[in-house]
Amino acid sequence: MKKVLFVCSGGMSSEIVVNALKKEAGKHGQDLDVKAVGSSEVDAELDHHWDAIMVAPQIRHRFKGIKEKADEHGVPCGSIPAQAYNPLGGPTLLKALNELIS
């Protein structure tokens, strides 16, 4: 099972997107554990062995800082494509995630 961390401003909106991703992953038989957090919680989460960190488009001005921290911990970190950041964006989201992990 892959562990994925979603980061947005407060951890609320990414929760909705997380559900879209899980649903799509389920269709393809991929087992995912996805958690949504706010950007201020990233520091505390980094020690919890994530397979990937994905940053929401609306906080892309914070992406560089988050990526630097993720790099220190050796966790792949990518941004969530803006057009996939909605409840219907599952397919694009899963594709972006698999590209990031592989």
Binding site: S13, A56, Q58, A82, Y85, N86
Partner: peptide, 11 residues
């Protein structure tokens, strides 16, 4: 009041 799906979904 969560509207990121609206802002990025429509978009």
């Amino acid at each position: 009041n969560i509207n990121e799906p609206v802002i990025f979904g429509l978009p």
